[in-house]
Structures are given as structure tokens and as C-alpha cells.
Computed example of a mutant assay.
Amino acid sequence: MNQVHPHTPHHGAPHDRHQEHGTDGQAEILDLDAEVLAEHMASITAWLPLRTGPRQIVDLGCGTGAGTFALLDRFPDAHVTAVDTSAGHLQHLREKACARGVEKHVRTVRADLDDPAWPDLGSPDLVWASASMHHMAHPDRALRSVHDALAPGGLFAVVELAGFPRFLPESAPAGRPGLEERCHTASDRFHAEHVPHRGADWGPMLTAAGFTVEGERTITVNIDGSRSEAIGRYALGSLRRIRGAAAATLSPDDLTALDQLLDTGGPHSILRRDDLTVRTERTVWAARRT
């Protein structure tokens, strides 16, 4: 399962299903997503309509732990079960937990949540799924599984992304203005075929699975690139992932211009630009098992 971004529909997600090949590159973009959007993630965890502080949390499709650690920042006494299909991502998450001194609060479980039989995830007070639900082959079944696992009165938070973030101004790059939007259009066509639940309205599906939806919130992200040097690397990683989905339908001139942006040693590298911004949206649904 995938987490991000961007994000990595894979943001990509940022967001393709987690596979062992390409894990290192995907781990980097997931970590950058967590770093760049930490403030927005914190605002989501603070918004959750919880009745009491959760003691047991499950992070479904945890990736490298953006949600796991944001939740532990918000609820430091909680214990998080982090679930993903990627052994590499789970190992990376464990290493980060040790570096943060919270390893006793984190348990990792490797599982494919498209399997009909889920592992025992306990009886959590809060289940968190960020940028992972749209990768499910059978999301209705997964939603029912979450409902059955939650403690009575427990909360399910579904966080989804509006595709990959945008970074470039519309006038960029010189000679091929609007390139990024054309890349997104091509990528969206690819993902509409291969990831049909991306961009779905999860409210009705949550209700159908037996939840009571108690809140929905869309957070607009607009971060100036000067705030962090990580934004350039985040843009680079995101556009690399978009290239894989968009290359087949881009014009030769657009593909050339995109490759110039991705050439980190070239004069047109996106890492050399000082006009980047991170622009995207995240929507969160908070649903309770009554």
C-alpha cells in the first residue's frame, strides 16, 4: 500500500502500489513529502474529532511513517501499529522510530490489505489511512474490515491527495510554458485507468460500510520554495514519478524539456530554480464506528 504523496501516487502516488523494486527512490519521496508538508499533517491530526486521546492506533499503508510519526507527535503516549506491503519501507520506518526514541511505541506489520484475511491489528481507537485507500483493489471490503477492527466509538481518518503537487509557474519552462500541467494531464489519464479510486469521494463509501461521517475538511497547500531546500528535491522526485506515467503521451518537445528539468547536472535543472512553490490539496474524512 502506498502512503504520499504526494503525493507519490505512487504521489504517488505519488502514488503506485509499494513494490520492492524502486523502494529506495520511493522512500526518499515519501520522506520529503513528510518533511515539506509536516505543518499541514499536524493540522490534520489536530483537527480530528476525537473524544479522548487514542491509546492504540493503526496506520494503514504507512509507507515510511509520515502519518505514524505525526500521530505520535500529537499523541505521544499512544502505540501505533504501522502496516505496509513493503519490507523496505517498514525497515526504514523502524530505523526512524529508533532515531526518534519512540521504537517502544511502534509495531510494524507487513501485510497486503487487498488480501481478504487481514492480520490481527488489535482493537484500535484510531485507524489512519493516508494516500493508501485509493490503491485498494476492493476498497469497500477494506472499509468494512476497518469498521470491524475498530473499537466501538473509534475513529477512522481517511486522508487523500489531489494527485501530484504542482511546483512550477505556468510560464515555465522557457520555450515550453504550461509543461507541468500537460504532464499532469497525461499522468491523470494513466492513473484513471490504473488507479480508478484516486480522487474518489470517500464519504458515501464510508457510510455504506457502516460508519458515521463526522467531518470532512480540505486543506489547501501553497508553500513558497524559499522556505526549505527540500522543496527542490521534492519537486525533482515528484516530476520523475510523473514522467513514468506521462512519457508515452507527451510530445517529443515536452519530453525533452521535462528531461532537462530532471537533469540535475544541467543548466535547466529544477534544482536550480528559485521560483518553485508546492501547490496541492489534501482532503480528510473522519468517520466513527458507532
Rank of each mutant, 00 (worst) to 15 (best):
L155R: 07
R273S: 02
V83A: 10
R273Q: 08
S228C: 08
T249L: 02
R289S: 03
L37W: 02
L150A: 04
A129P: 06
D114K: 01
V146L: 04
L32C: 06
M133L: 15
P119L: 04
H79L: 00
G266F: 09
A66Q: 05
D125E: 00
L236E: 03
S43K: 10
H15Y: 08
Q91S: 13
E39G: 12
R273W: 05
T8N: 11
W285Y: 06
G237H: 04
S269L: 00
L261F: 07
S251Y: 13
I242K: 10
R17Y: 04
P76H: 11
F75N: 03
S251C: 06
A230P: 03
H21R: 15
P267E: 10
R240F: 09
L206A: 04
A246V: 00
R17A: 15
I223S: 01
D140H: 00
G88W: 06
P169E: 03
T277I: 03
N222E: 12
R110M: 02
E193L: 06
W202E: 06
H92P: 09
F190K: 03
P14R: 14
D115M: 14
D114V: 02
P6A: 08
S130K: 15
F156H: 08
T85I: 06
D16H: 13
T283Y: 04
V80T: 01
H18S: 14
R94H: 09
T249A: 14
R189W: 00
C98Q: 13
H79N: 09
G65Y: 04
D259K: 14
S130E: 07
L250G: 05
H11T: 12
A157E: 01
I231S: 06
L206C: 00
L72S: 05
M136Q: 14
G215C: 05
D263M: 01
H184S: 06
R279C: 14
L71V: 01
D16K: 13
A137K: 11
L179H: 05
M136E: 09
A111G: 10
G153W: 01
E181C: 12
R243H: 06
H191D: 13
D33R: 03
H191K: 12
R141E: 12
D140Y: 02
M133Q: 12
P165G: 00
A162N: 10
W128S: 04
V284S: 01
H105N: 11
R55E: 10
L261H: 01
A42Q: 10
M133G: 09
P119Q: 09
R241I: 10
L71T: 00
Q19I: 10
V109S: 11
A99K: 12
H268V: 08
P54W: 00
A99N: 08
T64I: 07
H147K: 02
L37A: 13
S43R: 15
R240K: 00
G203L: 14
A200W: 05
P9Q: 12
A246M: 00
M41S: 15
T23S: 15
R51V: 11
R243C: 07
A247F: 09
T220D: 15
R110C: 09
R288G: 02
G63P: 05
A287K: 03
P139Y: 08
D24A: 13
L113I: 04
